[in-house]
Amino acid sequence: MDPGVEGENGLWSGEELDLDAYLARIGYEVERDGELAPDLRTLTALHRAHVRAVPFENLDVALGRPVPLDLKSLQAKLVERRRGGYCYEQNSLFAAVLERIGFTVTARGARNRSRGAALPPVTHALLVVTIEGEQWLADVGFGWQGPLEPVPLRDGVRVEQSGWTFGMVVEDEGIRVLRSLRPQGWTDLYAFSPQTLYPGDFTVMNHYSSSHPQSRFLGQVVAQWPGADERRALVRDTLTTVRTDGVVEERVVPVDELIATLESRFGIELDDEERTGLERMHPAGH
């Protein structure tokens, strides 16, 4: 069998994971929330808890720092330090968690369609989990537009998650498209092929997203959180909030509120060096 297809082979370094620390980070209590097993109930519960607790953010990229994807570094940053991360970090960590529990998990690469009709490169990383012969999209790293729970990889499926509706369609060449239902209708989020990706592919994609001049993650602060009641995004100095009824609110965050906003609205814990560097990046801080 192709390496990386079976969850127990260690491709995502699940054996190195401090599972108890991860569960504490996302607020999952076995006694209250159920024993961990490679089933849909566990996957759904972990997915919801992860996106609620671990924010999407690019702050290391914005500060010009490297973004390592080895499990030890991911645990130190996302679990122990209570920072967040973007898709390669989030889904690499989640893949290690799922692998440790015994899930069959593989990765895919997607083109982001949420920003219009342009044809961007494949830069988004997501996971596919197989449970009792059925495949589920699991993605804890798409930011504020992403799903709260796994989505079945079936053509025409429509799922409602705490007032947010997602769908899946299949296009030519087996391309699957994750969609979101908005007040104005369906909007494509991203499209991905059936091709399996591996950690080395994440490394290549991560290099582009963290260093290429055309990467949207360079030179600006991005923090996002896909809540059940509302979704939040901070890009540069603009904080946007979207509720399930479609109401959108925007406000400019002044430089003296930037750090408090990142910490209180997104749950990102920062040290003094990070606070100073991010304030310098604020449009009013230049």
Rank of each mutant, 00 (worst) to 15 (best):
E257R: 14
E273I: 02
L40W: 04
A76I: 01
V30K: 13
H47G: 06
R81Y: 03
A233L: 12
D155W: 07
R251D: 08
T42E: 08
T196M: 15
S264F: 00
E149A: 15
D2W: 00
R32K: 12
Q145I: 10
L59C: 04
D70W: 00
P283L: 13
P147W: 10
V253P: 01
N206D: 06
E274K: 04
I26H: 03
V252Q: 10
V151T: 05
L98M: 11
L17F: 06
K72Y: 06
T104Q: 14
R232D: 02
E31S: 14
A110P: 01
K77Y: 06
G10Q: 01
V235P: 03
G267V: 07
R236L: 11
Q161G: 13
E250C: 05
G146S: 13
F266N: 05
G84E: 07
L119C: 06
A125F: 05
V170E: 14
S180L: 14
G246C: 14
V222T: 07
T241Y: 00
L258K: 01
A107R: 05
S162G: 04
L127D: 03
T187S: 15
I175M: 13
E8L: 10
G143T: 09
S209R: 00
V51E: 03
V242R: 13
V242L: 15
G146D: 11
Y190M: 12
A125E: 00
L59G: 01
L127N: 11
R25S: 08
R115Q: 12
G146L: 14
V51K: 08
P120D: 09
H47S: 10
G109D: 02
K72P: 00
E6L: 14
T276H: 11
T276M: 11
D70E: 08
A49E: 04
S180W: 08
P3I: 11
G10E: 00
P152V: 10
L36Y: 07
L239V: 03
T203I: 12
V54R: 02
V253L: 06
A96D: 06
T241M: 09
L23R: 01
Q161D: 12
Y190C: 13
D155H: 15
G10F: 05
D60V: 01
T104F: 12
V247F: 11
G200D: 06
W144L: 07
R158I: 15
T165R: 15
R232C: 08
V252S: 14
E250M: 09
R115D: 02
E89G: 11
H124A: 12
S73H: 07
V169F: 08
A95G: 09
R216V: 14
A284P: 00
R280A: 14
Y86H: 10
G64Q: 02
D201Q: 10
E230Y: 11
L239E: 04
F142L: 09
T241A: 08
R100K: 15
V67T: 13
A117M: 04
E269C: 11
E16A: 12
S73K: 04
P38D: 09
G14C: 07
V222H: 04
V61C: 07
T187E: 15
L258P: 00
R243A: 13
N206K: 01
R280V: 05
R216G: 15
Y22P: 02
V67I: 12
G84A: 09
D33M: 12
G146P: 11
V122Y: 10
D33L: 10
V157D: 08
E263Y: 04
D2H: 09
P183L: 14
P147V: 12
A223T: 02
G34V: 07
V5H: 00
R65D: 00
R81M: 10
T261L: 10
S209H: 03
S210E: 01
G146V: 13
